[in-house]
Each structure stands twice: as structure tokens, then as C-alpha cells.
Design a protein around this nucleic acid. Structure first.
Lengths: 205, 205
DNA sequence: CGCTTAATTGAACATACTCAAAATTTGTGG
DNA sequence: CCACAAATTTTGAGTATGTTCAATTAAGCG
């Protein structure tokens, strides 16, 4: 079905779909990294989630028949496969197993979202930034050296994961360096002491 | 309490299920009001959602096969019907329409949750409290007078919807009274100017 | 009533934001 | 490959917004 559809390429910084628009299909990430983000008041960005190779985008909008709840932007060059709505719904109906899988996916995302609500509202900045770094580590993994987080984001973007201003994000990252939990190499972040980071994030789970 | 499976009664303040425990079925609210809340650090409560007559609880835990992500507590005396896991899954498998409905429900809840994340992190206290009142209005409705919100919560609980301390919640509610948006009768809150409240909440949707 | 819980008020304090400016990095065209 | 422009990072200082703590008043309940 997705024969030459795989030719969809998005350059770094390009938008795959916009919050508020209606979707007519699914997006499958073949390669590359994507951020899902929403705009709040005065254009402040909140990063909701990330997607990497193998992840599927837009399923919620499609399943719930609602506009996209977030904008998807390529963090680096991406190859994306598009699956039209009809095709997907067809498969879904003939395959009850798939809908159960979708349900589990949604349940999991919902749990994540609710937990993040608590984290952001009840934790201090250093805890939220620590957690943001752990989220990045888990989503994008580490490089061969076993400690460098495999993604490059601006300080502003890292702040927008944790809902923290850019300046405070910078100061907090500097503090984490001073504590020895992480170190910096250009825009790359290395995790030196994951245990400490977890402790700082006060991760309950 | 009732021995009859179909008519479990919960008194005001009693817990229907606890966050972290595993569920073995669904709960259907026949009558009464329920709050769903999570405990963060140092026992601070975050109210995640409410449920009233007709709402179903525990479906996410059941569908996603995960522990309850929140505690359900009766805000007033409740009649609750319990549907065992097997029964439900049986119906779900033979009824593909139901699973699609579940998917829509989950999609909607997820959207809500993500929107609330932005609201709480990017809005000021008066905006968040205003929104909390609108949430209450929409969920519990108004009394016959057409302006009194049909639920009684403590100031602390209202604050825990919006992630605001009890003291600040009190001061903010007083401010809303002064602005003429609402007025108080005992523990009841009357909405005098819904438009103003919506404006204050800066509701985008 | 008497007791417990909730609401209220005041004041000190802390945390993180904002604003401004400088330093550094990155990107681009010649 | 360099020079310039743009974007990002960094630092400092002042400030706002809410939190916390303590004390008082009011309300709910047995």
C-alpha cells in the first residue's frame, strides 16, 4: 500500500502537520526525529512528546476523529510514510487485534500525560529538567559511547519540555553539570551519573 | 454497604479504588459524584478528573492492563455498579463498535489531559481557578436557579484541580467575587457572569 | 455545646520569570 | 575559507507571583 509513499521527506525544521488541522491519514516515521508540540498563550511552546523511527503519528486524531492536537516538526531530516484514512480503518475493522493494540497505546499515552501533569505542577525546576533529560535519554537513546544523549535540542526546547524559561533552563543545566550528573560537549549532553539524575528527578515509578 | 454486586454503595469520602492497585473490572456510576485524584510528592493531591452518574471508571486500567492511575473517592453517597473483567472483555470482542467507542473516549481524554497540561503550566492562578470553576460547571451542571454550581468542594480541593495552594485559592476566589464573576452562598458557588469567567480563563477552544 | 475541620488573613520568603546586554556559536554567501 | 549576519547561549539584576507559616475566625458535625 505505501509503495512510493515512502518518498515523503521532511527537512529539519519542516512541519509534518499542524495543530488544529484535520488529518486524513497516519504518519509512520521511517527515519529521523520528530517533536510534537503545542502553542499556548503568546506563542509559548510546550513540547508534548517525541517520535522516532517506528513511531506512528496522527492515530489519535484519526481514531478520535478530531483535529490534530499538536504540531509535528522534524528535528532532523525525516523519511515519513503516509497511510490514508480509508486504508487504515479498513484494516482496523477486519483486525480486532489492532484496535485492542490501539487502545493499549492510548491508555499508555494517557497515563503518561497525567503523570507529566503532576510532575510539572508539583516539582521544582531542577527536578523537571532532570526528568526532561531522562525522557530524552529514554526516547532517543545513547550514542556508542554509552553516555551521550542521541538528540540535539536548543536550551529553549529543553525548557519547553519541562515548562521552564530558557534562562532558568540554562542555569539549571549548569547546576547539573556542577553536581556531576551530566556534562556538556557542544550541544550534546552526556549523562555521567544516571542514578543521581533519577534521584534528582524524584521519579516515583 | 450493599452485598448486592449490582448496587454497591459508597458513602461520602469512601474510596472506590486506589491508585496503584490492579483492577478486575469496571465501575459504572449510578448516582453520586466522584473525584479522581493522584498523590504527588509529600501527599499533595492533584485532582485529575471527575465522574458523575452515567460515567464509567477503571476502563483505562482494564483496557491498558495497567494499575489504576488515580484514586477514586466519593464526593457524596454513591451507587456504583461493578462489571467484572471477563464480562466486559467478552462484550468488547463480540462488539467491535464498542471498542471504537472506547478508542474515541480515550482519544478525547488524552486531548483533555494534554490541554490541561498547557493550561496549568502557562496560565496564571486567576486563569487556572477560573477554568477550574468552568470545569466544575460543565461537569456537574447548575442547580434549578441556573447559576449555582451543583457540587460542593473544599477550597483545598478546588485548588487541587488547578494546582494552586489553598490560601491562594481562597484569595483568588475572593478576587473573582470582587470582580463580579461569581458569588458565594455558604460553600456553594454561583456563576454571575460566565462570559467574564471564560474571558478570565482565557479559554482558547 | 464542644470539638474538629475548613476558611480566612497577614506577612515573610522563595522560586523562577523577565528584561537587558554580552559572549558565543551557527549558518550563509561570496 | 573567510566575513558577516543571525541565532543561541550565557550572565546579571530586579521583580512578580505564589508558597509557606502562623494565627484567627467561622462552619460543620456528633
Amino acid at each position: 500500500m505505501g509503495e512510493d509513499k515512502r518518498n515523503n521527506l521532511f527537512k529539519k525544521g519542516q512541519v509534518i502537520f499542524y495543530e488544529g488541522n484535520r488529518g486524513h491519514g497516519l504518519f509512520c516515521i521511517y527515519s529521523g526525529q520528530v517533536k510534537l508540540h503545542k502553542l499556548g498563550e503568546d506563542a509559548r511552546e510546550q513540547i508534548v512528546r517525541f517520535a522516532v523511527k517506528g513511531d506512528v503519528l496522527g492515530y489519535r486524531s484519526l481514531l478520535g476523529n478530531e483535529p490534530y492536537s499538536a504540531t509535528a516538526t522534524a528535528l532532523e531530516d525525516c523519511a515519513v510514510c503516509y497511510i490514508p484514512r480509508e486504508k487504515f480503518l479498513e484494516v482496523l475493522e477486519t483486525n480486532p487485534d489492532l484496535s485492542l493494540r490501539a487502545i493499549k497505546l492510548l491508555s499508555h499515552d494517557l497515563k503518561d500525560s497525567e503523570e507529566r501533569l503532576i510532575n510539572i505542577t508539583q516539582k521544582k525546576v531542577i527536578e523537571r529538567i532532570s526528568e526532561a533529560l531522562l525522557i530524552l535519554r529514554n526516547k532517543f537513546g545513547l550514542q556508542e559511547d554509552g553516555k551521550t544523549i542521541n538528540v540535539v535540542l536548543t536550551r529553549r526546547e529543553i525548557g519547553n519540555i519541562a515548562s521552564v524559561s530558557t534562562e532558568t533552563t540554562i542555569r539549571t543545566i549548569a547546576e547539573l553539570v556542577k553536581l556531576g550528573a551530566i556534562s556538556l560537549r557542544r550541544k550534546r549532553i552526556e549523562i555521567n551519573d544516571e542514578g543521581q539524575l533519577i534521584g534528582l528527578a524524584k521519579v516515583v515509578d
